[in-house]
Design a binder for these strands. Structure first.
Length: 307
DNA sequence: GAATTATGCCCAT
DNA sequence: TGGGCCTAATTCC
């Protein structure tokens, strides 16, 4: 599920188990052999997420930049610290990889270095393997994976809009409002534009527009400042929640019972996302779908109106 | 075994 | 605007 919350969780996992360690880097698949050789044997000093981008800093002033795209995922093995309040360990972070996902307390557990079967042989197309004495991270299917220097990293980050979970100061909200309300582009496109706000993807876009009851074609310039501020604050809350739980709970997130059902993946997790033709939970109107910003946009034609 | 699908994004035209 | 690309699970035949 590589929207912003997932990448922040990945950074958190690297901080918990890899930062401060010397890393054996390799490319079992071979396509990143040269890049891996640049990093091999150096120590990881920092893990940062900005929007959907992950930046891993090494003590040689080299950075690894990774963007998961649609399909990418990191698999973690060995000593993997819980990063949830609930103590759950997820072996896979990225695109859905149910078969490989490791969960504590369900008969499966991450590979234990003490068992002697560590590190496990790579499975499938592993672009990068980062290995410490005790922990292992395998990267598959990224859309971007490259070694950069600090200047290049700063350049990438400078092109991104604010991300409330990435050291964003108090001016971040103002900056978001300015970027959103200054353009004659549909708000449904602007929310997906990583230079307006970094980290929102197709699920959060549709759900945020519904939660704001905002018609997706409304151009940014016609969105009142108060509505734009409301979008930002909603994103702050959704992102926090997504980072904490690892799930995109966009509906009834304050209702504990509904929250449990959603976490158990019983459906009814979203207001509109992927609900084409089904009745809106609020008004019963069939949920509509159309292409906007090259992706499927789901919305309720009755509840979502212009400002 | 092929086609489909997916929570992205880049580039050429 | 359209095509390409990264990968693997699922669905269809």
């Amino acid at each position: 599920m590589p929207e912003g919350h997932t990448v922040h969780r990945i950074a958190r996992q690297f901080r918990a188990d890899f930062v401060g360690e010397r890393i054996a880097a390799s490319s079992p698949q071979g396509r990143f052999a040269a890049g891996a050789a640049l990093l091999d044997g150096t120590a990881l000093t920092e893990a940062r997420a900005v929007g959907k981008q992950l930046f891993l800093a090494f003590d040689t002033d080299r950075w690894l930049r990774v963007h998961l795209g649609l399909y990418g995922a990191w698999d973690f093995h060995g000593q993997i610290s819980p990063i949830d309040a609930g103590g759950a360990v997820r072996g896979s972070l990225g695109a859905p990889r149910v078969a490989r996902a490791l969960r504590m307390g369900e008969g499966e557990r991450p590979v234990d270095p003490a068992d002697g079967d560590f590190p496990p042989a790579p499975v499938g197309a592993v672009r990068v393997r980062l290995l410490t004495e005790a922990s292992l991270a395998d990267l598959r299917g990224p859309t971007a994976c490259e070694v950069l220097d600090a200047d290049a990293v700063a350049g990438v980050i400078a092109r991104l809009g604010p991300d409330p979970a990435a050291d964003a100061g108090p001016e971040a909200e103002t900056e978001f409002v300015r970027r959103l309300t200054s353009r004659a582009v549909p708000v449904g496109q602007l929310l997906m534009d990583q230079s307006v706000v970094a980290g929102i993807g197709n699920v959060y876009r549709a759900e945020m527009l519904f939660r704001a009851r905002l018609e997706p074609h409304t151009v940014g310039r016609r969105v009142p400042g108060e509505v734009a501020r409301g979008l930002w604050r909603d994103w702050v809350g959704l992102l926090d929640d997504g980072i904490a739980t690892g799930a995109m709970l966009t509906r009834d997130e304050d209702d504990p019972a509904a929250r449990e059902r959603a976490l158990a993946d019983v459906g009814e997790r979203h207001w509109v996302y992927k609900r084409t033709g089904e009745p809106c939970y609020v008004c019963g109107t069939a949920i509509a779908v159309e292409t906007m910003a090259t992706r499927n946009l789901y919305w309720c034609p009755t509840c979502q109106v212009g400002p």
